[in-house]
Amino acid sequence: MLVLEKNALSEEIESLVNQFGKDRSALLQILQAIQRKHKHISDFAQQEVARMMDIHPVEVNSVISFYAFLYSVPKGRNIVRLCQTISCDMYGKEKIEEAVQRELGISFGETTKDKRITLEYTNCLGMCDQGPAMLVNEKVYTKLDPETAINILNAIK
């Protein structure tokens, strides 16, 4: 990372720490904010958060590794998560699965070459009565069929 980039990141984290506080309970909010903006929380960011909150980098790392929605390595600009739990499965998740893989040319767990989309599974989204459900970044789409799913994918940048 360039020094300038590092400085900018440090400043950003500093303002987050000022906003949410130095208490341990503020850690998740701070990490989520970094994740939202940078799509991952880099090694450097983790150590800066630790320094400013006066905890140890490995503790930050531990929290990130615990939560499936926090990443320590860069992913695509958009994260698409298909629900893999039983209700959605019974509503025809498999068809959506096949369609999106074919459309993007990648399988689940992978990122498109242009870094536009990362495909992942998620567990129940609480939309079991409206399956199959899919989460695009922070937005939930329900009652999908292959066509709508592909349209949704094509609409995101």
Binding site: N61, S62, S65
Partner: peptide, 15 residues
């Protein structure tokens, strides 16, 4: 490592 020594090398990773 964290409490007694305040070095902070080890933690539980993943879940």
């Amino acid at each position: 490592c964290i409490d007694l020594q305040e070095v902070g090398v080890l933690e539980a990773i993943n879940r």
